[in-house]
Design a protein around this nucleic acid. Sequence first.
DNA 1: AAATATAGTTAGACTAATCTAACAATTAAG
DNA 2: CTTAATTGTTAGATTAGTCTAACTATATTT
Lengths: 223, 223
Amino acid sequence: MVSSQLSFTEENYLKAIYFLSERNESFDTSTSEIAEKINTKPPTVSDMLRKLTEKKLVNYEKYKRVHLTKAGKQVAMLIIRKHRLWEVFLHDKLAFTWDEVHEVAEQLEHIDSDKLILRLEKFLGYPKVDPHGDPIPSANGELKHAQRTTLSEVEKGKSCQVVGVKDSSSNFLQYLQKINVGIGTKIKIIEKIAFDGSLLISLKKGEQQAVSQKFADNVLVTC
Amino acid sequence: MVSSQLSFTEENYLKAIYFLSERNESFDTSTSEIAEKINTKPPTVSDMLRKLTEKKLVNYEKYKRVHLTKAGKQVAMLIIRKHRLWEVFLHDKLAFTWDEVHEVAEQLEHIDSDKLILRLEKFLGYPKVDPHGDPIPSANGELKHAQRTTLSEVEKGKSCQVVGVKDSSSNFLQYLQKINVGIGTKIKIIEKIAFDGSLLISLKKGEQQAVSQKFADNVLVTC
DNA sequence: AAATATAGTTAGACTAATCTAACAATTAAG
DNA sequence: CTTAATTGTTAGATTAGTCTAACTATATTT
């Protein structure tokens, strides 16, 4: 049942290193960036980096920059996976708003049970993105680099999930709300009307909806 | 958002003290019983008791027996509440069996968010008992001392929840399984037939079922 | 390239939770 | 009511995670 053998604190360091590394080309970060991120002081980070190096979760040499090993990245991805699945749960099932989910998910992400996460994922209907539109890694730690396309690119009969919008005018956002389309909404393409490029789509519970080509051009999705 | 300010460990001590105290009339327990329960050694418990005494969560004098203060009991009840609600979630929503729920709930019970628990309780339909039939304390830490009655005592039109059986013969248990009645099942009394004491009951999703008086006499419920 | 500024490490100390070994109090038995 | 058995505490150490202060390495500037 126990999967990582790592402490709460070690997990948080790995997650922080992942997010900081992601921000540059060389996929690495520094002692003080980490300290800043997780609200500790540089000496504390120095100690932890020595420990994580021993455990082969990071590659690190004194005074140089850190980066995650393959194993370290794997651990980080699984924590992020748990975090985002819990966010979906809080949002979809417990009606938390998108800005409330993060804090609680920070705690829930450390719960250690593989079975729990697999069951939760199934219960949530295998979501691909969290309530902020960020992609959810798979059980083996892979992150589909979510090739975002527009709704208009999706083929007839296929399903996809909303991850964002191109046009962020309040007109458009209000329209989206009105027809109940938001981040994470699953959409199936029922019909494409060649005449004007408009689409017939279905949302959950079989609600059908006709939308214009302009609409479809401005909704970003993953398949 | 933070409600208790207590460490994971302190919470576990309070919970252990609660369960051990519950086993005798004087509602107290001892250093070594606690040590045994939470798998530590007596000196560790001694230290912790000093600490919990300072925090006014237990009443304790050296070499005497311990008991929870009102505040300590309150904390314990809220942890038990969280534990049991999570057990219901795991069982009802994620299809864990009754013997699998405890281990994961041991972790989940320490998640600290009042809002989360209130929303979870609502999402689960305000259950009164966990999958083992143990009662769930209310948000203010009160445990309805679940006046168990038999199904036959419940009035027409009222709803109740199964918490156990009087007759535990395999004949009866098999019958219960067949008609999908278990611990936690909610039952509404549709009709009482005066002629033979039999009942017409409804289970969830409106499945109706006729049961005999003998059946109703042997099913324990809370209202 | 020397001086200065920035970033990182080492040393030493603290807290929480744990242990073992040694000692003290309480309880039970004769 | 003294002795033995049981139970509980104190002392001293350990580990994980954290801190401040002092020191060292790397980077930048002129």
